[in-house]
Design a protein around this nucleic acid. Structure first.
Lengths: 186, 186
DNA sequence: GCTCATAAAGCAAATATTTTGCGTTTGTAT
DNA sequence: ATACAAACGCAAAATATTTGCTTTATGAGC
């Protein structure tokens, strides 16, 4: 039971993976959720179902895999000149992406997967992003809270609202979270 | 397609629901996750599989249903005399429960369910709890942040860590979250 | 209390899915 | 070049899910 990633990159494996991912994306775009099934994906990808089962285990893991890619930050965060600005700029685009219908679905797909490694990777994205922005601030001579504080003060409420109360995942609130986190001593 | 709850309480429906829930709990305790299947649950509950499918739709929804019950706060929060104390006391027991193996599983089961209503209910639990503790504090003459601030400052990081970085879901951190939230101006 | 209407459950046949064993292809390393 | 192992394809077997129809239990109105 493999369920791993990017084995033998460049070869047939990679081609199959791409074809399958592609098929999932295409089907997601045009079919209601409960018609997204492994056999259908396999057919569209020109692959046999057993390949998918052996490689991903089940539908949840597969769509989680696809959705995780969608969530990977592609370009690095803009530099606005201040830490508060950088956080706001990044946060706004992230919120926009994640409150959209496909964004919410991606979030849910990842949460639905059994493999905890996927969530840990989301965590690492956020952690390293906060690290980057913090470094920038320090270089500029600004003070900056620890990465842990940034995560707890900004990423956590953002994520929490996205998952449990999307109505409140707004840029206004983002501003409050940032302000509250940065004005706190140390 | 019903998938609703507590129809005709007290009747046969209720008995079946209880039998099925019970069967899920029992099987969860003794079988690896991938052997928890609808037909097996049905057999144990003395019910036919189609009943489960018609009522819950699929396995995920059923186990989410069972897990949500497990997460319902049963007794109301102890009164320690201060808001900080109340928050710490409640938080500690909640963290303990949710970092346990069955607690983590319950959390994941709920996150895995498609029905958003379930998550909203979790949110409401937290919201009403914070409301209660805040009222208490105000009655005592203590100042207290708004419910939204309490949620963003305490519940959000707690939940975020439980989901994404359980190592950091500790009582030490809880204390920091509480302190940070309460010392912040208004 | 009795009857009726209805919602939910049982049953079993029809479908759909997932799993598995085995042979073949394909990429990698020697 | 050849050998090796990982991944895939195929098809049969095993499971799980859906569906149409029947039966049973419950609550409402009489």
């Amino acid at each position: 039971m493999p369920i791993k990633e990017a084995v033998r990159p460049g070869g047939r494996s990679a081609r199959v993976q791409e074809a399958v991912h592609q098929a999932v994306r295409e089907l997601q775009a045009v079919t209601p959720r409960d018609e997204l099934t492994v056999p259908r994906i396999a057919e569209r990808a020109g692959v046999t179902p057993s390949t998918i089962y052996r490689r991903w285990g089940n539908l949840s893991e597969l769509v989680a895999d696809v959705s995780l890619e969608r969530m990977r930050p592609d370009d690095d965060p803009v530099d606005t000149g201040t830490l508060a600005g950088d956080l706001q700029a990044w946060g706004e685009q992230y919120l926009e992406e994640m409150t959209s219908v496909p964004g919410q679905r991606a979030l849910n797909d990842v949460m639905a997967s059994a493999d905890g490694g996927r969530r840990e990777r989301c965590y690492r994205y956020g952690e390293s992003l906060m690290g980057t922005l913090r470094e920038r601030a320090l270089v500029r001579g600004e003070g900056a809270p620890s990465v842990a504080r940034l995560i707890d003060g900004i990423i956590a409420p953002m994520t929490y609202r996205l998952l449990y109360d999307p109505e409140a995942a707004t840029t206004d609130n983002l501003q409050r979270w940032i302000a509250g986190t940065l004005t706190n001593e140390e």
